[in-house]
Nucleic acid binder design. Sequence first.
DNA 1: TCCTTCTCTGAAAAGCTTTTCAAATGCAGT
DNA 2: ACTGCATTTGAAAAGCTTTTCAGAGAAGGA
Lengths: 334, 334
Amino acid sequence: MKPTIRDVAKLAGVSISTVSRVMNAPETVVESKRLKVLDAIEELKYQPNSFARGLIYRKSYTLGLLVPDIENMYYAGMIRGMQDACIKLGYSLMICNTDRDPERLLSYIDAFHEKQVDGIVFASDMLFPEYYDKLVGCRIPFVMVSSHCDEYDIPSVEVDDEAAAYDAVKFLIELGHKQIGMIGFNHANSISGPPRMEGFARALKECGLEQNLEKVKYASHRFEHAYEASHELFSEYPDTTAVFCVADEFAMGTISYLKDRNVLVPGQVSVVGFDNIRMAGMFIPKLTTIAQPIYELGYRSAEQLHELVTTGSVKVTREKMKHKLIVRESTRER
Amino acid sequence: MKPTIRDVAKLAGVSISTVSRVMNAPETVVESKRLKVLDAIEELKYQPNSFARGLIYRKSYTLGLLVPDIENMYYAGMIRGMQDACIKLGYSLMICNTDRDPERLLSYIDAFHEKQVDGIVFASDMLFPEYYDKLVGCRIPFVMVSSHCDEYDIPSVEVDDEAAAYDAVKFLIELGHKQIGMIGFNHANSISGPPRMEGFARALKECGLEQNLEKVKYASHRFEHAYEASHELFSEYPDTTAVFCVADEFAMGTISYLKDRNVLVPGQVSVVGFDNIRMAGMFIPKLTTIAQPIYELGYRSAEQLHELVTTGSVKVTREKMKHKLIVRESTRER
DNA sequence: TCCTTCTCTGAAAAGCTTTTCAAATGCAGT
DNA sequence: ACTGCATTTGAAAAGCTTTTCAGAGAAGGA
């Protein structure tokens, strides 16, 4: 049985109040007793029971995180940032992988509610009304990362997807490409799908390349789907010389497809990715991509949640972070 | 303020005991009252306070996981398995990323102790005495995954590293390779380093290829190190035609190095990896590798921990799972 | 020496739930 | 109608900590 504060008190020959004070306000107890208590704590390896504490403080010092896919390196990087922030701020982090299953997401919210997490970071793209209602019903403060919400005023951190996509496509155009395709996210369940599409369109229009507007195929998050999608793209538009992919994993899928068709990248077709996950620099060819500050996004979102939890609101609600084009080896002048 | 059981009781016009019973033993309360209570719960969105419950049950229904590197896809896959098992068994999972920092690991154990997790899955290779002492000091049951412990009788699940390495190298030999190198884990901080080395050696000896025994370079877990290590390997032994890498990420590093030197894989050099992380099938060329049942390893370890936590012991303490050679495109006959 | 003031300590309450135990209610049988 | 039994309900305790409040003791001043 785990030792309690009573055991420590008995061993040290003091009352439980004194033991408690040694831990929470050491300066108020006389040195001789304090030392005895400290010894007793050490000897019993006493650790205050967080249930009892939680009951009193009404805080769990735990944050919850909802991610759609933990096997996606994008989220893995974000988690690192969040966890570092949590250490700094004194929280534990409870990570839940929804696998993009709404049922599962909802049941995780219940679990968070029951565990009394102090707040939730919502990294699962779309905030459906169902989720929103549940969250506010449970009165759990939450923030969004790499996502946002138009209807309600939810704090969020993300990158400017439209501008980032614009930069990527503009880069392709400046390289001399005229036949440009895109592998995008299915709009239905994606927050960043539409703005990235818009960025693509804006760059095209600005340069009089409207004929490419229709060269868009959609995939849903995974390599295999992107592989499929590029098959469709190149079957329909065989003269495409550049592809903008809205995720690095899509870029990999596209390049794999091309490779299987003996099309050289970047020799014959240029591909640019998005996110700059760790793998982007390890792939062959190394991916030219739009870098998101992934770690910082995670870090910042935890800070933001802390701010929300402690002060009840957040200074800047819809924060944007800077993206950056990283030119590596998957693109070439036309 | 969150509603408590009192609020529910008042709203439903019954005592708190009745409310509690509705939740924990519904058949003992008469239907009319039960319905009223259920309505009240619904209306207030009442969720029992897990601190109070934890205090009584002395269980948190939370498991802790210690991983060395969450950005490593190997662990990401394992986490999915664990989390699925946790859902099935009614636990929450608290994932902590140690970044291979002993300080950090120790402080996470403290956090787990304070949070009263019911048990810990230890996925960080080596169980140093320091860790062991702390864990038993805290009286927290724990199991190991993809690792084991020789000194003490700790439940664990893993693959037979020696046999798996043997299979990989044997495969290379059967392909006709005679000059075989290896990129291994630094022994100092790795559990699977030595047995994989032994498997390599056994295959070599069995086939009279002892001259390769010295063609081993070490890297520490990341792509870049493996890149460096293969540079050393090929500088020293330029006639090497096959490399056994003890991790898929090492294989990628090796292939990248070779690519940068214009050496064809598998044309001139064959490379086999280890783990079969998701990325292995996405890389170019697709990796021939030893597949570990990553998801199952995670799943099983959580089950094992549950067994340990509930019954106090585990039927089979040192469980082995089957590996399998998967031949893809990074290897070729000599 | 006695009183005041300050420092330090312990008892008790609060925080929320589950569970035990006793009381109350309902019902059947005589 | 009354006894006895089963069913249902409520009061209270337990689980562990923090915090408030009051009291004890010490120190200092008159």
